[in-house]
Design a protein around this nucleic acid. Structure first.
Length: 502
RNA sequence: GGGGUGGUAGCUCAGUGGUAGAGCAGCGGACUUUUAAUCCGUUGGUCGAGGGUUCGACCCCCUCCCACCCCA
């Protein structure tokens, strides 16, 4: 490269990037800078699996010829021979590159290639002095120039913000991150197989809803231009899945995104993945048994065991999940309350004020008990625990108990102090459902912006007759957090929601 | 919304009211079995942004932005 060709660094770029751009410019001048005809014959992991254990005296006479490709992650250059470590999607493999093997011109060029460049190489497998399986390279190409430098090769990327905003960089340099998302894929696949094995039909229902429904949450709104109407990103697929039960698909499930226009936290992302499933001729007790098996299957798929470690503490998914009523859970985890106190509306209101709870005047006994449960017991539910007997007033889609007035046949599943699943015997009485919707509308008009809308078509569907059905939703992100030992939901979402960069 | 912690070279991090540092990466050189290669030399900074205090601010004060954690 002549003196005249040296570029001035672009204003907002580092000299490192400017240097790499000038290398790319030189490549363009010599021909195709981004060739796409490189073909690889082997992945690194397969080479290690098939040949890694062979001693040199067995391996080298075989003269096994391989073509590999990947990103150059480490490079150790010497005068006439060098080592480079490339990384493909399966593993890393070491290249032994010599002036003798590839010729002086190419060797000199190779010395200027950068970490992060994507290369292809052909050669013969051998073992180095220290016994590392390597490729003795006789063909070598730089097939994609990397203009931006990678993070520090030993410490990697530690800045959380960059890990989330530039997940592509995080994935390049962090084996942990790659493992997390590979595990996520296995977990979702295991759940899907479990459902299919149990005669569930996988379906896809709308993400754009004319009426948001199926949960108590604030929706995102959008606008359909051609129809000139407001629409909502779904907060839950529930009401559509139950329409399918009416239609005669007796077991359905959907694994897909929900959107809720609420705050962000270590366990909330505005879009998150939920599996909902519905099975006709079952009830909430059946659902609890089934959900338990499903989660156990997912754990075994991800970790090989149903006894997992989360943040240094064991979570036992192998044992039958505990079942407690709301009041029972308070009595177990906050035993200083007497049963009489827990059934005393005035006492509960006073007690909840101490926790900073406001606007409880309209809450009935069950909702007050639930609020106290959330304050005192929820965060202590480490091992999987089903909480049952949710009050009707907070369960507008759940079937009421035939024997206990005010209570629904509903459960929520908690583990590591977090809600993981929510299920119930579905309310299939259209007149009861219509009345519940009306109460929700009243609540909405009274200022509860999480209250549900009246969905007339859903009532119409129920009027055709929905068989008795059990339905449940499992928070996939939170389950993946547990099974990958991830402290934040952002660690299990590839591109978590972030404020725009300044 | 409130509280805490952080933001310094491309990356990982030190730093002190008095001229801004290291390692890695980069650049130049040596080196044919390295392993975060090594050795010699070397470039690189609006210290998150904007105000203020001060003779002098990366440091102290205020406001704001972004992130992480806790709380509501």
């Amino acid at each position: 490269m002549s003196e005249q060709e040296q570029q001035q660094p672009v204003q907002d770029e580092s000299h490192v990037i400017a240097e790499r751009r000038s290398k790319l410019k030189a490549m363009r001048e010599q021909g195709v800078a981004f060739p796409n005809d490189a073909r690889r014959t082997h992945h690194a992991a397969d080479l290690h699996k098939d040949h890694g254990e062979k001693p040199a005296e067995e391996l080298e006479p075989q003269a096994i010829r391989v073509g590999v490709a990947g990103r150059m992650m480490l490079k150790r250059v010497m005068g006439k021979a060098s080592f480079a470590t490339i990384q493909d999607s399966t593993a890393r493999i070491q290249l032994f590159v010599t002036k003798e093997g590839i010729g002086e011109d190419l060797y000199d060029a190779f010395k200027k290639w950068d970490l992060g460049d994507i290369v292809s190489a052909e050669g013969v497998l051998f073992k180095t002095k220290t016994g590392e399986l390597s490729v003795k390279v006789d063909q070598l190409r730089l097939i994609t120039k990397s203009i931006r430098p990678l993070p520090e090769k030993f410490h990697g990327l530690s800045d959380q913000e960059t890990k989330y905003r530039q997940r592509y960089v995080d994935l390049i340099v962090s084996e942990e991150t790659r493992k997390t998302f590979i595990a996520r894929s296995k977990i979702v696949a295991a759940i899907r197989h479990f459902m299919l094995d149990n005669q569930f039909l996988e379906v896809e229902t709308p993400m754009l809803h004319p009426i948001p429904g199926g949960a108590s949450a604030k929706p995102f709104t959008t606008h359909h231009n051609a129809l000139d109407m407001q629409m909502f990103l779904r907060i839950a697929p529930e009401l559509f899945l139950k329409r399918l039960i009416v239609g005669g698909f007796e077991r359905v499930f959907e694994i897909n995104r929900n959107f809720r226009n609420e705050g962000l936290s270590v366990r909330h992302n505005p879009e998150f993945t939920m599996m909902e499933f519905y099975a006709a001729y079952t009830d909430y007790k059946w659902l609890m048994d089934f959900t338990e098996q499903c989660i156990r299957a997912a754990a075994i798929a991800a970790q090989g065991t149903a006894t997992v470690m989360y943040q240094g503490r064991e979570v036992d998914l192998a044992k039958p999940f505990e079942r407690l009523t709301i009041v029972g859970a308070i009595q177990k985890y906050a035993p200083h309350y007497t049963l009489a106190q827990l059934e005393d509306v005035a006492f509960l209101r006073t007690e909840l004020k101490k926790f900073g709870e406001e606007a409880m005047a309209h809450l009935g006994l069950g909702a007050l008990q639930l609020a106290l449960f959330e304050e005192t017991a929820e965060s202590q539910l480490w091992n999987p625990t089903y909480i049952i007997d949710y009050p009707v007033e907070v369960s507008p889609l759940a079937r009421a108990s035939d024997t206990h007035p005010g209570i629904t046949e509903r459960f929520e599943l908690f583990m590591t102090g977090r809600e993981i699943a929510n299920g119930f015997s579905e309310l299939n009485d259209p007149e009861d459902q219509a009345e519940r919707f009306r109460k929700q509308v009243e609540a909405k008009e009274a200022g509860d912006d999480e209250a549900m809308y009246y969905d007339a078509d859903y009532i119409r569907a129920l009027e055709y007759g929905m068989p008795p059905t059990g339905g449940c939703g499992i928070g996939i992100d939170r389950l993946v957090m547990l099974l990958t030992d991830s402290p934040s939901i952002r660690d299990v979402i590839l591109f978590p929601h972030m404020r725009p960069e300044a």
